[in-house]
Computed example of a mutant assay.
Amino acid sequence: MSRTAAVPGLRIWHLVAVLSAMSAPLVIMYAFQIIDSVASPAPGALWPTGFDLNNWRFLWESVDSGRPGIWQVTFNTFVFASVTSLSVCAFSLTAAYALSRLNFPARRFFLAGLIVLHAFPTITLIIAIFIILQYLGLYDTLAGVILVKAALELPFGIWIMKGFYDTVPWEIEMAGVQDGASRFRVWWSLVLPQVQPGLAALLIISFLSGWSEFVLPLVLAPGAGAQVLATYMNAVIASETTQDFGLFKAIGMFYTRPVIVIYLIFQKRLMNIYGGGTKG
């Protein structure tokens, strides 16, 4: 019995050792990023000689006079991610319900189109999107980038929410209709609570996707007024006057903190995206 019990434990330790060895380079790189963000090592030196907060000066002063401050850029990023996630969830809730519950013409065509649109690379559409935004007068505006990002995220959101709606039994809706409730009332009071896990996961994923977006703001909103944190970091490292890798690492740490906090708090809800709605 002791040998039999010891073998699974030994296998687990082997697995932990392999995974630790594979993860070690990534952990070391993050550790050095944290150390370099609060220290200034001498040129060519591996270890820093002292503690220094000069790399975090972007929190209380402007890095470049021609660039907005970090708090304005952070606000732009928050607005971009929040409005994008709310828009995706609002449209996905209604569109996914229609695809799941209503039998309308060309329904199969719409379902197939969702998969095709989700699989289509964003970069291949960038020229067409650029022309359309210029025509609408939304180029180099935060509203234009939000509109594009939400539209590109919608196929994924609709497909995910349809899967959750499909797991909700028809009997729940039929019982509500027989009791005299309207179709909207049934959806709002009976069906929507059943798909809340999927809605919460979609909201978080859409927010994180908007928070980390780089290509769309860089191409469609290059001006300083609509700058987000991803493009702000790119401008810092690409500038000939403010090129500072210590500053770049500190801004990177500032940029990733909200993502880490959100993941630590809502990681269980994020796992619900792989499940379905709650039957009952």
Rank of each mutant, 00 (worst) to 15 (best):
A81V: 00
P41E: 04
V38E: 07
Y30S: 07
A42G: 15
M29Y: 10
S62N: 14
F32T: 00
Q33G: 14
V79W: 08
W56A: 00
V63F: 11
D64P: 11
I35S: 00
R67A: 08
G50C: 11
L46A: 11
F78A: 15
L86G: 15
I34R: 00
Y30E: 03
S40K: 13
S65H: 14
F75I: 09
F32M: 11
P25E: 12
F91H: 02
N54I: 07
V83T: 04
S37Q: 08
V88L: 09
A24R: 02
W60V: 15
V73S: 07
F91E: 00
S82C: 10
P25V: 11
A81R: 04
F32N: 02
R67C: 09
L53M: 13
M22D: 06
S92N: 05
V83K: 02
G69H: 11
A21E: 04
Q72H: 10
A21W: 09
L59M: 08
R57K: 15
V73Q: 10
L53W: 15
F91P: 03
E61D: 13
W56P: 00
Y30Q: 09
P68N: 10
T77C: 12
V38G: 07
N54G: 15
N55G: 06
S85C: 01
M29D: 06
S65I: 09
V38P: 06
F91I: 02
L59R: 03
I28T: 06
I34Y: 02
A39F: 00
S40F: 05
A24Y: 08
M22R: 07
N76P: 12
S87F: 04
M29N: 11
A31F: 10
S62M: 12
T77Q: 07
A90R: 03
N55R: 01
A45W: 12
A90K: 09
G66W: 15
P25S: 12
F32G: 00
M22F: 14
M29L: 14
S37W: 08
W60R: 09
L59G: 02
R57W: 03
P25H: 15
G50P: 15
D52N: 14
N55E: 02
T77F: 14
A24G: 02
L59N: 00
W71L: 12
L53R: 06
P43R: 03
A90F: 15
I35Q: 01
N76A: 10
I35C: 03
T49N: 12
W56L: 01
S37D: 10
N55C: 03
F91D: 01
F58W: 10
I70E: 05
V27H: 03
W71S: 04
S65N: 13
L53N: 01
L53H: 03
W71C: 04
Q72F: 08
S37M: 05
L59I: 01
L93R: 05
C89G: 08
A81Q: 01
S62E: 11
P25C: 12
W56S: 02
Y30A: 14
V27R: 04
L93E: 05
V88F: 14
F58D: 14
L59H: 00
L93H: 03
R67K: 11
Q72R: 11
V83I: 15
S87H: 01
T74M: 13
S87C: 12
S82L: 13
L86D: 06
T49P: 02
L93G: 11
P25T: 09
L86E: 06
I35M: 02
